[in-house]
Computed example of a mutant assay.
Amino acid sequence: MRRSKYERPAHLGQASDGPRLKTSAMIASLAAEGQRTVAAPFGHALAKLAEERPEIVGLSADLSKYTDLHIFAKAHPDRFYQMGMAEQLLISAAAGMAREGFMPFATTYAVFAARRAYDFICLAIAEENLNVKIACALPGLTTGYGPSHQATEDVAIFRGMPNLTIIDPCDAHEIEQVVPAMAAHQGPVYLRLLRGNVPLILDEYGYTFELGKAKTIRDGNDVLIISSGLMTMRALEAAQKLADDRVDVAVLHVPTIKPLDEATILREVAKGGRLVVVAENHTVIGGLGEAVAGLLLRSGTIPPGFRQIGLPDEFLDAGALPTLHDRYGISTDAVARRIREWL
């Protein structure tokens, strides 16, 4: 795994309430002990889809193993392109292939796409509305490797880009459905990719992904959590904990951040009487929370209370994911604790 010379060492920084803490390892899995997982759902779904879609090609910037694209490469070696450590070249090549009638799935880390290749995505792909799918691993706080690899602001960077669809799936069940939906959509897509052994949750709720649609996973009368990505998993877990305190929590999953399903969000918020909490694996600046807040203000729909759960507007520490998630308020216990405080 590539590392920046500016990258922090594998320990937590100075805490506000205590001394520097050491960690034994930087844990990559998002799954709790004993939780069901699926290995490389994106890679397997893309390899399967490519069997019936010969125009699909896969490109990686030296990270196929870490974006699960190696599954596709093994199944379709003649349609896989290794571009090396050159994200701008990756995007430019994908744009050229799209112009020739192919459907490129370009993979890298979210930080490299958002920070290094933004101008190329904007001018070579989005402005021309080319049919390129950009699948990026390590969105938000899904790695312990510090600011060089933590894409805490990628949604904020990409939300203002015209023509670009943004998807933030919750689990393996959803990713398996997202891949063919991306292929069916004509135009550029940015996917916040969960890779490796991805938790499996939404199959228990009979969930079906639809591009551009938000869906109520769980209903409740006291609190409405509007969430995307892995925070929907956290929201569902927190809702179960809060039920023990007789707090009835609804969870509205918003996997498509752009275009936002405004009608469903407004309808759920308008049911009235509920604290509205937006939870996201992203900085509180410029992401789903501010998108929902702007929508509510423009529509004149003001809930009794509105709160955000997200990452702070700062560069985060390196360390073990469970420790970091609890420190920065996106663990299950942290979510439940904050909601109790707000009620």
Rank of each mutant, 00 (worst) to 15 (best):
M1A: 13
R3Y: 13
E7T: 12
H11W: 11
L12Q: 14
Q14A: 08
G18E: 03
A25Y: 14
A28M: 12
L30W: 00
L30V: 08
Q35S: 00
R36T: 10
T37Q: 09
T37D: 06
V38K: 07
F42Q: 00
F42W: 12
G43M: 00
A45H: 13
A45K: 10
L46H: 06
E52N: 15
E55P: 01
G58A: 14
L59V: 05
L59D: 02
S60D: 12
T67E: 01
T67S: 02
D68I: 04
H70Y: 13
H70M: 02
I71M: 06
H76Y: 08
H76W: 11
D78T: 13
R79C: 03
R79W: 05
M85P: 00
L90I: 08
S92M: 08
S92H: 08
A95H: 04
R99C: 11
M103R: 15
M103W: 04
F112G: 10
A113G: 09
A113F: 14
A114N: 07
A117Q: 11
A117W: 08
I121S: 12
I121T: 13
L123K: 14
I125K: 12
N129R: 15
L130T: 04
N131D: 15
N131P: 06
K133W: 05
A137K: 06
L138A: 11
L138S: 12
P139I: 04
L141R: 09
T143P: 05
T143F: 01
G144F: 12
Y145P: 00
G146V: 06
G146T: 08
P147W: 13
A151W: 07
A151K: 03
A151Q: 06
E153W: 13
E153C: 04
A156S: 07
I157W: 10
F158V: 03
R159G: 06
M161K: 07
M161A: 07
M161I: 14
P169M: 02
C170T: 15
E174W: 05
I175C: 00
I175S: 00
P180V: 10
A183C: 07
A184V: 06
H185M: 08
V189C: 15
Y190P: 10
V198E: 02
V198M: 01
P199T: 05
P199I: 03
L200F: 00
L202Q: 05
Y205C: 00
G212I: 05
K213G: 03
A214L: 04
K215C: 10
I217S: 03
D219I: 03
N221A: 14
S228M: 05
L236I: 14
V247K: 01
V247C: 04
V247E: 01
L252A: 09
H253W: 02
P255Q: 06
P255S: 08
P255D: 09
K258H: 11
E262L: 03
R267I: 02
R267K: 15
V269W: 12
K271P: 09
K271L: 15
R274F: 12
V276R: 13
A279D: 08
A279Q: 09
A279G: 14
E280N: 11
H282R: 03
T283F: 10
T283E: 08
V284M: 10
G287Y: 07
A293M: 12
P304T: 10
R307M: 09
L311E: 04
P312Y: 14
D317E: 13
A318W: 11
G319D: 07
A320T: 15
L324M: 07
G329T: 10
T332L: 01
A334E: 09
V335E: 02
W342H: 11
W342I: 07
L343T: 14
